[in-house]
Amino acid sequence: MIKSFILPIKELIKGLYTVFKNGFKKRVTLEYPEKKKLLNNNFRGKINYIKENCIKCGICQNVCPLISCIKIDTDFSIDLSQCIFCGNCVENCPKNALYFTKEYELAVNNKEKLILKEDN
């Protein structure tokens, strides 16, 4: 009967020891604003638009999963607050007018700043 007490107590002390050993390992925190992670080349960040290459063919609007995200009526504009960053428009543009950058810090105060227009 004493044996049925010893085994749980041994396991409890082993648990304490594991946590204690964990305290002396290296810290894994990445101090965010000072140090940032290296991103690979295929990272899908903010979309940029080259005005000279665009021929207003409308392929990006047809291929986008959302109806109202890309508008090419008079000026070209992408609404980044709806965009899901799938990459269909970038991949299918025949003149390579759209490309991904590596920028991901896109928090804004009001939603109008998230609509990318031609003069950006």
Partner: peptide, 27 residues
Amino acid sequence: ADKIIPVDIYLPMCPPKPEALIDAIKK
């Protein structure tokens, strides 16, 4: 969500990276 409650900061991307959430809190 801003059809229901007033929102202060919008954070796009699907989903945003955790560093982007920390950046939104800083803003």
